[in-house]
Each structure stands twice: as structure tokens, then as C-alpha cells.
Design a protein around this nucleic acid. Structure first.
Length: 660
RNA sequence: GCCGCAGUAGCUCAGCUGGUAGAGCAACGCAUUCGUAAUGCGUGGGUCGGGGGUUCGAGUCCCUCCUGCGGCACCA
């Protein structure tokens, strides 16, 4: 007897071994049809694999996340079968399910072409039509290795050889084709359905290591229903519409040139946005006790040797030799410059913590394949700072930085965060004792931050991902369409101050070495601007919009008044354009809406006579007619950056103009 | 850096197997003064990414370099 308990609490008795499919059939033909796999006491289990003991069984369908994953995994297998049918001699390697889809890495001398994708997809559909039974088999390890080797499947043989000995090794057979796989799988290829599509071709290193040969990866997406597939493809189109490279051109924010790969040409509007962000950070960090400095972009090699960059970061640095044979480097980081500022005076413990900030433009030679719009560039501006403090102050200072950073993100609506602790890398300076201390300090900070965050902040570890001089906390934020971006960092550094022979006089009158904390909040201002463009899809909140208001006339009669309106709004600090062109108002509204101007102030004869403006919000269909003074005050208030808005809210309004 | 793909007017793109370039939008000019997402007519604009080669002849074929796109690797 086998007793099966189901998720609804019911129990079923069977005389002997039973399969998930049997159980599903007993419950109903609809469920039998919909079931893809099951779990047995929580473990994934093939639908047709016998269960010979009492167990809790759950049936998995395409509606479950686990079911979708099965579909994607099977899609990978079916694709591999199709590829090997069409292109004999191609070796299979690995093919997992991933978010929204799957991929499979193949080894083949001939490159796949985009046209091949269509052929492969067609063959996949044929395999689904064949409805081949997918059968689980347990094989002996050595036999499996020999079997794959005999067929020239060297990668697969290598994978099996690396599997821990003693564990049962499972092979899934579908038709004439088979693959090593942990499973589970669908009962047959027909169950896969046809809601899939091959999406892209790419190279990928064997085992993810750039020293290994490059394989050919084919990506696809797969879903339980055609509608889900359609929705997903539609979502991709929408994401493309908010691509910052496209919006940057359409909104006239910036451009790139072939002769400066990875360096931005900011246009007036983009630079206005960029500077607005800098002003915002500047106010916030000044309030937190930072002083702002500026250090040279180019410094002598000897400085970089002291810092260790010349030895550890050279391949990322732009260097130059001058006529007099001196080596210089464009700064890839601001820390050595800030060390110089710190060191140029005798520091006492009373000066600590000393917080030095700089909107420093750094240059890094990034691999050509890494460049990507504003997101990955070779010259960028960091909202960088270094906190020099005593070891006793370290923890409290890290916590203060955390508060500052999280507060900043909230003002842009980024509330879901992951903070990763990146620990010591292989290539590093300093003793293990120092690394132990630094990693311990950050772990402690992280634990406290997570504990106090009400679940908004998640923590994880990135082993070996620290910088060569110290471990770091990486702040990863999630944007409006669910993508994660690493922006801020807090790095603890017990090394650089010593290398630079920096010191302070303690309360005991002796000389001590300070601890240094490196921090960036937005990280790269260029990249953060790109993230914001995509996050807001170009529809910036009023305070960030490069052009906040366009005053547009209906007829030439209103030109004089329009200029008056613009002057009044500009006097209130707003960024205003005037559109006096001899065009229809429809045309003007359409054009300014396309470039995402948040407010269009329409003025015609009527408004001129009544001294009003008709405000039209981006995306809105209606207008609001306000007296000019009223419109000015409303917009001025709305255009306040969040920090200044809070300050104003905290101070009872007096009707007096506030001086920033 | 590696794999694949691409580079034609400001933008989006067409240009079959080689026979010295085309559309829409934008721009400019003229007319139109028209109340909330495209007024009409007209005009100009390209050494087809750079260099080299094959050919009587190259946007089209070959080589090479550059840049971009999608991944991989790397990373803010």
C-alpha cells in the first residue's frame, strides 16, 4: 500500500507504486492534461516516475513557477535535439533554464547564423509534434563517460567526470536523442507546447572562463501559453522604448563619437540634468559634514606606485609619457588625490572624522566589448568621497554613510535594495589580519542595516569581489522595470593610509594611522543619469526635467504675452523655453510631448487678455487654466528638489522668499 | 578582449545575382494665424564608417582597421 497525501489535505491509497500522472488522472482529466511534473516530499519528480512509498505529492502545472522552469529546461533540450539533428557533429554542453527563458551552449566549428535560428526553431516545433516520450534512465558513470566520448561529446564527458562519484547519474532520453540531466522533465516533448521563440546568438566561454574556448550560445524564451509569450515580447519592445541611448538622442541629452569611444558629449539639456543631480548630491553631503575638494586629473607615476594602482590596476589606466620622459596617468580613482589633501596638514584626532568629497572625473580603460551607452564608459564622474577616521569611529561612520545613501535613493523612488559584501580578491595589498578586521567591520554594519530595514534591504556576499585595497559594500538598486544596478559603494581601507604614511596625533599624543572609508553614492554620475532616464522612461519629475516648461502660443497675437509668461516663470527659477513658431497648437503639443517636456503652458488671445495660462501636463489630456501668478507659484513649488521641499515643509510658510 | 551581427542623408530604413544612390520623417523656403499629439506646396542634403585589393566598372565581392548592437568575460 502506498498512501499519497495531497496539498488540499486529502489522502489517496494505492495498492502498489503509483505515478504522479496516475494521481492526476484520478483527480480529473483536466489536471492530468495540465500536469507537467510533481514533487514528492518536496523533491522534484518526473510525472511518470513511480512513487513506491507513502509521500506528500504536489502536481506541478504551467501555472506554477516550477512548471515554467520545467518548460524552459525542456525547451533547451528540445533545441539541443533539433541542433544535433540539423548540424551533425555539434557537441552539446550545458543548457539551463534562466529568467524568462533558456539557453544552450554548443561547440561547433561553423558559426550559427541568424538564419539558422529559424531552421532550428522549425525543427523544434517538429519535435514537439512528434511528441516523443521523455524517459528517465539511471546510468553507470564510467559507461556514461565512455558513451559520450565514443560519440565525440567531449564536453559532456568532462561534465560527467567532474560529477561527484557515488551519486546516481540520470540520463533523459527523448526519441533517439539523450542528454545527461538531473531532471525532472516533462513526460513528453508534446507537453512543451509551442509558446517559445529563439531570440539571440552569442558567444560564451566554456565554464564561464575567458581562458577557455568560446562556445556558441543560443538564447530562447519559453512560456506556458501563447499569450504569455506575446506579453513578454511586448514587454521587450516597451523596454526598448525607454533605452537611454534612444531617449538620449530623441531628447537631445548627449551623443557619442567614434573618436571618443566610451566618452560622453553632453548637450545642453543633458548637462543641465547632470548638473541638477550634482547640486542635489552636493547639498545632501554638505549637510552630512563633507567638504568638497578638487584634485588633478593627471598625476605622476610615482604617486600611483605608492597607492599600488600602477602595480594592480595598470591595465585599466590611461598613461602617457611626456617629452621629458616622465610617466603620468589619468586618474582612475580619486583616493590618491584625497590622500594628498589629507597629508598636507598635520591632523589631530580632533579633526577626525575628516570627510573629503569630490565630483572627480576618472578615466578607466574598459574592455571595448564592455562599453554600453552611459552605463559603461571610459571617462566618468564619481560622487566620490573619503572619510578618514579612527578605528573606533569606523562602524558609526559606515552606518552614517548608509543612511545618507539609502535616503538619496529613496528620493528617486528606489526602495528595493540589495547590499552585497565583496570580500578579499586574489590580487590585493595588505595582510590577512587587516582584511579580517575590515571584512568583519563591514559584516557588522551590514547585519545592523538589514536588521533595521524592515525587510527592504537584502544582504548577500560576493566572495573575492573586493577592491585590491579593501572589502566593500555594494549598493544594488532595482529600477522601475525590475532591473538591478550596482551604484553606491562603501569600502573600508586599512591599507592606503599606511602606504601613504598618513597619520594623526591621538589623544595620547602619539602618532596613529587613520582608517579610510571610500564611498560613492550614485557611483558614476553618467551611469546614474542613464539609469534615471530608463527608470523614468524619460518622463522626469519636474525638478529633474532639463526643460521644465514650454510656453507655446496659439497665434502670433499672443507672442508678447508669451514672452512675459516665460520671463515670470524664469524669474521663479524655472527652466523655460518659448515656442512662438507659426505652427498649429496641435503640432507644438505633439512635438514637445515627444521630447517629454513635463508642462506645456499654452497661451492664446484669451489667456493674454485674462492674464492666465493653460497648463497641460505631459501625458494628460486636460488643461488647467490658472492666473499667471498662481501658475508660477504652483510650478515653482512643484519644481523643488525633494530635499528642499522637505526643508520648506518643515519650516512654516511665511510668504517670504526663501534664500537657498 | 572573445563570439556573432551591423555601419547608406540629422533620424528610421530600401537598394535583387557588381553597371557611378532612393523613401518617409526632420531641416530650409513660401503660403497659412489655424484653441491642446502631425496645415499645404516647394527646395537643398549622401566621397554609401576609414584604408587597401579584385574588376572595364564596387554601396554591392575580398582583406584590414574603426565604431556600434546582442551576449560572454570584466566592471561604477
Amino acid at each position: 500500500m502506498v498512501a499519497i497525501s495531497l496539498p488540499d489535505g486529502s489522502q489517496r491509497q494505492y495498492d502498489g507504486p503509483v505515478t504522479g500522472l496516475d494521481i492526476a488522472r484520478d483527480i480529473g482529466p483536466g489536471l492530468a492534461k495540465a500536469s507537467l511534473a510533481c514533487t514528492v516530499d518536496g523533491a522534484p519528480w518526473d510525472l511518470t516516475r513511480p512513487i513506491d512509498r507513502d509521500a506528500a505529492v504536489t502536481l506541478v502545472t504551467g501555472k506554477d513557477e516550477a512548471g515554467l522552469e520545467l518548460i524552459r529546461h525542456d525547451a533547451a533540450h528540445v533545441m539541443a535535439e533539433a541542433v544535433q539533428e540539423l548540424y551533425p557533429g555539434t557537441q552539446v554542453t550545458i543548457g539551463p533554464a534562466i529568467e524568462n527563458g533558456f539557453y544552450y551552449d554548443f561547440a561547433r566549428d561553423e558559426p550559427f547564423t541568424p538564419e539558422d535560428l529559424a531552421a532550428i526553431e522549425a525543427r523544434m516545433r517538429a519535435i514537439v509534434d512528434r511528441d516523443e516520450a521523455i524517459v528517465r534512465e539511471e546510468w553507470d558513470r564510467d559507461e556514461a563517460i565512455a558513451w559520450f566520448k565514443a560519440r565525440g561529446e567531449h564536453y559532456k564527458a568532462e561534465i560527467i567526470a567532474d560529477l561527484p562519484a557515488g551519486e546516481p547519474l540520470t540520463i533523459y532520453r527523448q526519441g533517439d536523442w539523450l542528454d545527461l540531466c538531473r531532471g525532472p522533465h516533462l513526460p513528453s516533448t508534446g507537453k512543451l507546447g509551442k509558446a517559445f521563440k529563439l531570440t539571440k546568438l552569442a558567444g560564451a566561454y566554456w565554464r564561464g572562463d575567458s581562458r577557455n574556448p568560446m562556445l556558441q550560445r543560443i538564447y530562447g524564451t519559453a512560456w506556458a501559453t501563447d499569450n504569455q509569450l506575446k506579453d513578454y515580447l511586448h514587454m521587450l519592445e516597451e523596454a526598448e522604448k525607454r533605452d537611454h541611448r534612444r531617449l538620449g538622442r530623441e531628447m537631445d541629452l548627449f551623443h557619442f563619437e567614434d573618436y571618443a569611444p566610451g566618452s560622453v558629449f553632453w548637450h545642453d539639456k543633458g548637462w543641465t540634468l547632470f548638473q541638477t543631480l550634482i547640486q542635489f548630491v552636493r547639498r545632501r553631503q554638505a549637510a552630512a559634514g563633507f567638504q568638497e575638494v578638487n584634485t588633478p586629473d593627471m598625476m605622476d607615476r610615482t604617486l600611483w606606485e605608492v597607492s599600488g594602482h600602477w602595480q594592480n590596476y595598470r591595465e585599466n589606466m590611461f598613461t602617457t609619457k611626456t617629452e621629458d620622459e616622465r610617466d603620468f596617468a589619468l586618474k582612475p580613482m580619486n583616493c590618491p588625490g584625497h590622500m594628498a589633501v589629507y597629508k598636507c596638514a598635520l591632523r589631530s584626532y580632533r579633526d577626525l572624522p575628516l570627510k573629503i568629497a569630490e565630483f572627480g572625473k576618472v578615466h578607466r580603460y574598459e574592455p571595448s566589448g564592455a562599453l554600453h551607452g552611459l552605463m559603461r564608459v571610459r571617462s566618468f564622474t564619481q560622487d566620490d568621497a573619503h572619510v578618514f577616521c579612527t578605528p573606533d569611529q569606523l562602524r558609526a561612520e559606515c552606518l552614517k554613510l548608509n543612511t545618507l545613501i539609502l535616503g538619496l535613493y529613496e528620493d528617486f523612488g528606489f526602495e528595493q535594495l540589495t547590499i552585497k559584501l565583496a570580500t578579499r580578491p586574489e590580487k590585493r595589498v595588505g595582510s590577512d589580519d587587516l582584511w579580517d578586521a575590515a571584512e568583519g567591520a563591514l559584516q557588522g554594519v551590514l547585519d545592523e542595516v538589514v536588521a533595521r530595514s524592515d525587510g527592504r534591504v537584502k544582504a548577500s556576499v560576493n566572495p573575492g569581489e573586493g577592491v585590491f585595497y579593501g572589502p566593500k559594500l555594494e549598493y544594488v538598486l532595482r529600477d522601475a522595470i525590475g532591473r538591478d544596478w550596482q551604484c553606491g559603494t562603501v569600502q573600508v581601507d586599512f591599507n592606503l593610509p599606511g602606504r601613504f604614511d598618513a597619520g594623526y596625533v591621538g589623544a595620547d599624543g602619539d602618532r596613529h594611522v587613520p582608517v579610510m572609508i571610500h564611498r560613492a553614492m550614485f557611483g558614476s554620475l553618467e551611469r546614474f543619469t542613464g539609469i534615471l532616464i530608463e527608470h523614468y522612461a524619460g518622463r522626469f519629475p519636474l525638478w529633474l526635467a532639463p526643460t521644465q516648461v514650454v510656453v507655446a502660443t496659439i497665434t502670433g497675437d499672443a507672442d508678447g504675452y508669451a514672452s512675459e509668461v516665460a520671463a515670470a516663470l524664469r524669474a521663479a527659477g524655472l527652466r523655460v523655453d518659448v515656442d512662438l513658431r507659426n505652427e498649429k497648437i496641435n503640432y507644438k503639443v505633439r512635438e514637445h510631448s515627444h521630447v517629454k517636456v513635463p508642462v506645456i503652458a499654452v497661451v492664446g488671445k484669451r489667456e493674454a487678455e485674462e492674464r492666465t495660462v493653460a497648463l497641460r501636463r505631459l501625458g494628460g489630456a486636460s488643461q488647467e487654466v490658472l492666473a499667471l501668478d498662481r501658475a508660477r507659484d504652483t510650478l515653482k513649488h512643484e519644481a523643488l528638489p525633494p530635499d528642499l521641499a522637505r526643508r520648506d515643509a518643515a519650516v512654516p510658510a511665511t510668504g517670504m522668499v526663501q534664500v537657498a
